[in-house]
Amino acid sequence: TRVETATETAWISLVTALHLVLGLSAVLGLLLLRWQFPAHYRRLRHALW
């Protein structure tokens, strides 16, 4: 049971790290898009909202 718990903890930390990385890359990508294509971003936002 001790090994299982350790594996579970490792998986949880791995998944958390993955989610953090994905979230950060998504935010960075959005910022980059907004910085590179302001007109396109505004049009996209206008279409979405």
Rank of each mutant, 00 (worst) to 15 (best):
T7R: 13
A6C: 09
E4A: 14
H40F: 11
L14W: 01
P38K: 14
E8W: 01
H19I: 01
V15A: 03
A47E: 00
Y41L: 06
A6N: 06
L18A: 02
L31W: 12
R2W: 11
Y41N: 10
V21K: 01
T9M: 12
A47I: 11
E8S: 02
T1W: 09
G23H: 00
W35D: 09
R45L: 11
W35A: 15
L31V: 09
T1C: 10
T16S: 08
L14R: 01
L44R: 08
E8G: 03
H19L: 02
L14H: 06
R43N: 09
Y41Q: 05
R45C: 08
R2Q: 13
L30A: 13
L48Q: 01
T9A: 13
S25D: 02
W11G: 03
Q36V: 15
R43A: 13
R43M: 08
L20A: 08
A26L: 11
Y41T: 14
A39N: 11
G29D: 08
S13F: 14
L32C: 00
I12Y: 07
L31S: 11
T16L: 05
L44M: 09
R43W: 08
E8Y: 02
A17W: 06
F37W: 10
L30V: 09
L22Y: 03
I12N: 04
A47K: 10
A26S: 09
G29E: 03
L28W: 01
Y41D: 07
E8P: 08
R2M: 12
A6I: 00
I12F: 04
R42V: 11
R43I: 10
A26W: 07
H19A: 05
Y41H: 10
L32H: 06
L14F: 02
A10M: 07
T5D: 04
Y41R: 02
E8F: 03
R45P: 04
W35C: 14
W35E: 15
P38S: 15
R43Y: 03
T5S: 03
L48C: 09
A6G: 12
W49F: 00
A6R: 11
H46G: 12
P38T: 10
H19K: 06
A26M: 11
L18C: 03
S25G: 05
G23R: 02
L31C: 15
I12L: 10
L18N: 03
W49I: 13
S13Q: 06
H40R: 13
W11I: 09
T9C: 05
H19S: 04
L24E: 00
L20Y: 02
V3N: 03
L22K: 01
E4S: 13
A10C: 00
S13P: 03
F37I: 08
S13C: 14
S25W: 02
T16F: 04
A6Q: 11
L20E: 04
L32Y: 00
Q36F: 04
W49K: 11
A10L: 01
T7S: 13
L22N: 04
R45V: 13
T1F: 12
L20N: 04
L48A: 01
R42G: 11
L18G: 03
L24T: 05
R42S: 09
Q36D: 00
F37C: 10
L24P: 07
Q36H: 15
V27T: 10
L22Q: 05
L30D: 04
G29M: 12
A10N: 04
L48V: 08
I12V: 10
S25L: 05
T9Y: 07
S25Y: 01
A39T: 14
Y41P: 06
I12H: 03
